[in-house]
């Protein structure tokens, strides 16, 4: 009895110890800033009155929602970016994982590591490399285009191409984590199911559509939600490469929040913008779970 009590005590103790670190971290660096941002969003807290912010109710929210040329324009840009990024952000990792999965263990590891590499490199480095690849005059892509008889493009320096260029950059650089998730999910699908399909003489497409795809649904749902969140929160492209331009073509919501905060010095307005973005993401995630999570087994 004592041994059991000790063991339980010990297990609980260590469980709380490990959880405690994470909970403390989340409280200090996640929940507290969110709470403060929420409180600031109801104040007129700007650089002008740092020491004397006042409660102004919903004024910041009303100002944002009425800002058709600013806020809603940024929402439009972020939504367009999300629509461009998410489908490919799901299908490309899935396709690559399907290609990698049949390979031997060594090759699998090599490709997984290679595709995941941009994920462990600093975002600044990735942005600078991508900027060089798409540089309007002498970038790598233009060099390749010219070599194959194409015309060099101005990419992110062109208002018609800038958003697409950032979408393209996302396709190139941010699918590593999706490949890892899909590879892990694929390896967990029991071979016996495929063997049964083989006995029924199922085609490759039927095997994928009737077995692989339904069994990958939980991962797909996760990848979709995370991709939507990442896309709506996109910032690095605007910050390191386009500065929101040209012609406001890449004026994402997060870029607007950044400029409102750092350039305009309007902390409470930026906080309200961040709260609205958080709500939008939360609503979209709930919708995803509700409509696309049906039949998903975890």
């Amino acid at each position: 009895m004592k041994i059991l009590r000790d063991r339980v005590y010990s297990e609980w103790f260590w469980a709380y110890m490990f959880l405690g670190v994470d909970i403390a971290w989340s409280i200090v660096f996640l929940f507290y800033p969110i709470l403060r941002a929420f409180l600031y969003s109801f104040q007129n807290f700007t650089l002008e009155n740092v020491g004397n912010p006042q409660f102004i109710g919903l004024a910041n929210y009303i100002k944002i929602l009425k800002d058709t040329t600013g806020w809603w324009y940024s929402i439009k840009i972020s939504v367009l970016y999300t629509l461009g990024v998410v489908p490919v952000g799901v299908l490309l990792p899935l396709g690559l994982a399907l290609l990698i999965n049949p390979l031997d263990k060594k090759s699998q590891n090599f490709f997984k590591a290679a595709f995941y590499l941009p994920g462990v490199v600093s975002g600044v480095v990735v942005a600078l490399v991508l900027r060089w690849i798409f540089y309007p005059e002498v970038g790598l892509i233009n060099w390749v285009l010219v070599k194959f008889g194409g015309h060099p493009q101005t990419w992110y320096a062109n208002p018609d191409l800038a958003l697409f260029t950032l979408i393209l950059m996302s396709w190139i650089s941010s699918h590593g984590w999706g490949i890892i998730l899909y590879s892990a999910a694929l390896s967990r699908i029991p071979k016996s199911i495929y063997e049964a399909a083989d006995i029924d003489a199922a085609s490759s497409w039927t095997r994928f559509w009737k077995i692989t795809w339904p069994l990958l649904k939980p991962v797909t749902l996760y990848v979709v939600i995370i991709s939507i969140i990442n896309s709506l929160q996109n910032f690095w492209g605007a910050f390191f490469i386009t500065r929101g331009g040209p012609m406001r073509a890449t004026e994402f919501v997060n870029w607007r929040i950044y400029t409102t905060f750092y350039m305009d010095g309007n902390y409470s307005l930026a906080s309200a913008q961040a709260v609205i973005l958080m709500l939008i993401i939360a609503i979209l995630s709930v919708i995803n779970f509700k409509f696309f999570g049906k039949g998903v087994e975890y």
Binding site: P136, E137, Y156, A157, N158, A162, P246
Partner: peptide, 10 residues
């Protein structure tokens, strides 16, 4: 044609 429009992105 003395200035490149795309140099705006530089």
């Amino acid at each position: 044609k003395l200035v490149k429009a795309e140099s705006r992105g530089f």
